[in-house]
Nucleic acid binder design. Structure first.
Length: 958
RNA sequence: GCGGGCGUGGCGGAACUGGCAGACGCGCAGGAUUUAGGUUCCUGUUCCUCGGAGUGUGGGUUCGAGUCCCACCGCCCGCACCA
């Protein structure tokens, strides 16, 4: 198995040396014992997993969660479990400091790879998936992860996706009430319409509407709705995909196929209703600013104003963040797709406009969004009225205005917006100045100050006094703050009926249907009129029907005008169904879409809490216990998982969708927590050298040798680069190789020691041996390599050892609690290096030292720690032993060494009493020979400056 | 272009609120054990003209800067004609 013979320790040596094979034996037998004893099972406060006594014994609750994996067929490489090892060490540490830790692992198993494999082989994806999950469970178990395996789920289990479908129904049967700022059941909307508390869109009484009209109104309010809208059609995948799954260059996240905008009838989720809360509640979360910023940018809230411009096609509404610049709006630009373009186009301009629109529609979004491109556009022939100046201004179309943002129309202020400036220059449109830029602005551009914009090299953006900005009723001239200008114009606009202050978002509703096979079926049927109905709860789950035709109709990846065809469409026996939904038996058609892969990951952490509950997706009491808000920690604590660890790649997909679902569930009263993940920690990636040959093809990294700084593969020079570990770069290292050569504890320790958990770091197989040697030394300080007997003594340790031990305990506790395992390990090694010397001198290790070392190492290297613990005479697992605490008396020394600096350079060290005051320290320092020598004759009594920082250092300035 | 982050020995990385730069590990050198290689153990290891210099570069604040401020260079990540 292990090819890396140069790193593999040879067999031989003393019988009881901590060798790879000894480690393997220890590891597997402890893994068996943990499983048999249910060591890591965490008790619930209620339901089938309840155990009141155990709950009382375990202490404060703590929910630690990994982003669950997709069970890939390739299995794990050593890069995958970095985060899992981190959460395991933390969970084990917390168990030893009095916490009831919920720690489990599930599988996000719906999705494309299993389906594509099924298409190729004809094997049902469920079979592939189950096999992959079993394999992954085995690999994770071999690492010694302390999961409560009773709580493990797969998103593909019918018992799981039954509740995914149930949550969908909840969302479908809910609407967002702007007045309360929450989702509410749709029945309450009906009551409000019926009672007249809320008026219908056209003001007619609810009773006066026919059933179809009522339905339409309700459907328009639902949080999950079917809509005909421009969506991302990906012929290469045969399905539509969400905005979040389209890359910046207009291709699919998965498979990298072209994506086209097409109008299609699809399921959408009204995530935009939650835009404000999704932004504002980020303030409640203990997440990195980087991730919060990404979410804020994705939601893209901008404050501004809606302004109406009168035109022959009726009022043209624009969105602007700078209503204060309205006096400088000298033309308008509409997106080529804007519905008013048809009406506005005059006969003379008809051909030019038609040509331009055709050219624009042929372009992909990517090309349209290339900023460096010269501005293009066409005049429609019509004008609109600037509401503050009363001027007639020309209306153009141009592809730099996007139909998908704001209103698809802009007012152009060429003096204050760079794009408008370029457009006006290109087409000879007027550029009146409406602000007086400061002198420094002109100086920086090396021109003389002037309001003649033909001299300006670019638009001016910022605070500056307004000019030419009054119309009698509205006067900005003299004002010089943008904020003030905006406020003044906004109130004028609403007072005069020309617009109002408003907020716009980049976030679009979430496209929720996919035309694939391997996903959750929608719990939806359509009646004879084509109206969707969710199935009653007792009809769930809607099982994914059996078939041997898993593939959607596939198309040429560039065939924009193909149409999606779901595999479920073909199953006519399944699609047509006779049901009684309350109006007597009728024939319905099932929805043949499936949900996107993100659906199952929107709520999986909740199912870990109560995995076998068949009455509810989670018992509210159990949810409150594990995830309820912790006002005791912080008044505004939102609740949720205490620690969530995963990669940064889910910053806007999974993490945004899951927050949205969780908030809906909260609003509908199903969960007490406001947010799913209170604290998020992004672990880094393990990188590895990858090597390319002269043809640019990756070669097997294990077959590359380094000779004098040159990298060779089969004698040929190859080029080195860094990359994420994986199959595609041919640089994956399997954990099995590491078990074979060193064992799981060494692998765990190496991954934790190689750097801080949140940093990406390069894998170096040759470095692993350092941690192996440490474990051998640790073993040797407690176990005799010849006899296997423990070599501990019961007398007290010497003073120096006890002080070092207690200092180490103090630091290791702090570091582990802060997830800084790399520095905790360094301290343990230092301690062990010292204890090794004691052992060599006396032939034994004092028991108090040995036991503390084993307990401190246990979270990191649980197998060897358990084995040593048992050899120290303990019968039961150390999982719930108390983590060592430092004796404060041993943390302070009587005398400490202090550096003495002369002009900031360390010249000497002196010993001073730990509690010495400044004067004493000064006196000691200034009487030290080496200090006097270093002062080089300067009079110690007439130094220019003497700085004494007690406990730190002394600095002398002659 | 905008936003965020990061630059420390041959390598991975330590250094808490400014206070002994280079903890710990790898590698390397020397030694012990071994027939030998490997393993294991011990000692040393920032650099150089041995007195200094040194945390990407150049300035600044300070008694004192890897840490704070300014400018620049380089790398990484996210967003990108967002009105």
């Amino acid at each position: 198995m292990a090819e890396a013979t140069d790193t593999e320790p040879a067999s031989g040596g003393p019988e009881h040396r901590y060798s790879a094979s000894l480690a393997q034996g220890i590891e597997t037998s402890w893994q068996d014992r943990w499983e048999a004893e249910g060591t890591f099972e965490a008790p619930n406060p209620a339901g089938p997993l309840a155990d009141a006594d155990l709950l009382a014994e375990r202490g404060e609750k703590l929910f630690v969660l990994d982003m669950f994996p997709y069970p890939s067929g390739a299995g794990l490489h050593v890069g995958h479990p970095l985060g899992y090892i981190g959460t395991d060490v933390f969970s084990r540490f917390k168990r030893m400091t009095g916490h009831n830790v919920l720690y489990s692992m599930g599988f996000d198993a719906f999705g494309l790879p299993a389906e594509q494999y099924a298409v190729q082989t004809g094997q049902h994806p469920a079979v592939t998936t189950d096999g992959n999950i079993a394999n992954m469970r085995r690999q994770l178990r071999r690492l010694g992860l302390s999961h409560d395996t009773r709580r493990s789920i797969s998103t593909t289990d019918p018992d799981y996706y039954r509740w995914t479908q149930w949550i969908f129904s909840q969302i479908f049967n809910a609407w967002y009430d702007e007045r309360t700022g929450t989702a509410r059941p749709i029945d309450e909307l009906v009551s409000e319409f019926a009672s007249g508390e809320r008026s219908t869109p056209d003001g007619r009484p609810w009773d006066a509407l026919d059933p179809a009209e009522r339905r339409r109104i309700l459907d328009d309010h639902r949080l999950a709705y079917v809509s005909e809208a421009p969506v991302n059609w990906c012929p290469g995948l045969g399905t539509v995909v969400a905005n979040e799954e389209v890359t910046a260059d207009g291709r699919s996240d998965r498979g990298n196929y072209p994506v086209f905008k097409r109008n299609m009838r699809q399921w959408m989720m009204r995530i935009t209703a939650y835009a404000d809360r999704l932004i504002d509640d980020l303030d409640l979360l203990d997440w990195t600013d980087a991730i919060k910023t990404m979410q804020r940018n994705w939601i893209g809230r901008s404050h501004g104003a809606r302004v109406d411009f009168a035109s022959p096609a009726g009022p043209l509404t624009v969105f602007t963040t700078r209503p204060d610049t309205l006096f400088g709006a000298t033309f308008m630009v509409l997106a080529p797709e804007h519905p008013a373009v048809e009406t506005l186009t005059t006969p003379e301009q008809a051909d030019a406009v038609a040509d331009y629109r055709r050219a624009a529609s042929a372009k992909k979004d990517v090309d349209r969004q290339d900023e460096s491109r010269e501005k293009t556009g066409v005049f429609t022939g019509s004008t609109a009225t600037n509401p503050v100046t009363g001027d007639e201004i020309p209306v153009w179309i141009a592809d730099y205005v996007l139909m998908g943002y704001g209103t698809g129309a802009i007012m152009a202020v060429p003096c204050g917006d760079q794009r408008d400036f370029e457009f006006a220059r290109r087409f000879g449109l007027p550029i009146p100045a409406i602000q007086q830029p400061p002198a420094t602005w002109f100086e920086a551009r090396d021109i003389t100050p002037s309001l003649d914009t033909s001299k300006w090299p670019e638009a001016f953006v910022g605070d500056a006094p307004y000019v030419n900005s009054s119309n009698g009723a509205l006067d900005l001239d003299g004002t010089s703050s943008v904020a003030e200008g905006v406020a003044t114009v906004n109130s004028w606009l609403s007072d005069n009926g020309h617009g109002e202050a408003t907020v716009t978002y980049k976030l679009r509703d979430w496209l929720f249907s996919r035309q694939r096979y391997w996903g959750e079926p929608f719990p939806v049927v359509y009646d004879a009129d084509g109206n969707p109905h969710t199935l009653p709860d007792e009809m769930l789950p809607v099982l994914l029907p059996e078939t041997d035709s898993f593939s959607p109709r596939t198309f040429d990846a560039d065939d924009e005008f193909s149409d999606p065809e779901s595999p479920l469409d073909r199953l006519s026996d399944w699609v047509e169904v006779e049901l009684d939904l309350g109006d007597g038996p009728q024939t319905y058609r099932r929805d043949t879409n499936v949900m996107p892969q993100w659906a199952g990951s929107c709520w999986y952490e909740l199912r870990y809490l109560d995995p076998t509950n068949s009455n509810a997706f989670v018992d509210p009491e159990v949810e409150r216990y594990w995830m309820g808000p912790r006002a005791d920690l912080r008044p505004d604590h939102p609740g949720g998982v205490d620690l969530y660890v995963g990669g940064v790649e889910h910053a806007v997909l999974h993490l945004l969708y899951a927050r949205f679902w969780h908030k809906v569930l909260h609003d509908l009263g199903h969960v007490s927590s406001l947010e799913p993940y209170a604290r998020l920690f992004n672990q880094g990636y393990i990188l590895a050298n990858a090597f390319k040959d002269e043809r640019g093809i990756y070669v097997d990294a294990t077959a590359v040798t380094e000779v004098d700084g040159q990298f060779l593969h089969e004698g040929q020079p190859v080029e080195r680069e860094w990359g994420k570990m994986g199959k595609s770069l041919k640089n994956a290292v399997s954990p099995d190789e590491m078990y074979e050569a060193y064992g799981a504890d060494t692998l765990r320790l190496y991954e934790m020691a190689m750097g801080p958990l949140d940093a990406s770091r390069p894998w170096e197989t040759r470095d692993v041996v350092g941690m192996y040697r440490f474990l051998q030394r640790l073993w040797r300080t407690i176990v005799d390599e010849e006899s296997g007997a423990a070599t501990v003594s019961d007398g007290p340790a010497d003073e120096e050892t006890r002080r070092l031990l207690n200092r180490t305990i103090d630091i290791v506790r702090t570091e582990m609690d802060a997830l800084r395992f790399n520095t905790a390990i360094a301290k343990l090694i230092e301690l062990n290096n010292h204890v090794t010397k004691v052992h060599q001198a006396t032939g034994s290790t004092p028991r108090e030292v040995a036991e503390s070392m084993v307990l401190m190492a246990a979270p990191l290297v649980p197998h060897i720690a358990e084995e040593l613990w048992s050899r120290l005479g303990h019968d039961s697992t150390l999982t719930y032993e108390e983590f060592p605490s430092a004796d404060p008396a041993l943390l302070v020394d009587d005398e400490i060494e202090m550096p003495v600096q002369i002009k900031g350079k360390v010249r000497a060290r002196v010993m001073v009493p730990a509690d010495a005051d400044e004067a004493t320290i000064r006196q000691i320092a200034l009487s030290d020979e080496r200090v006097l020598a270093a002062l080089d004759g300067a009079d110690p009594e007439s130094l220019r400056k003497v700085i004494v920082v007690p406990g730190r250092m002394v600095n002398l300035v002659p």
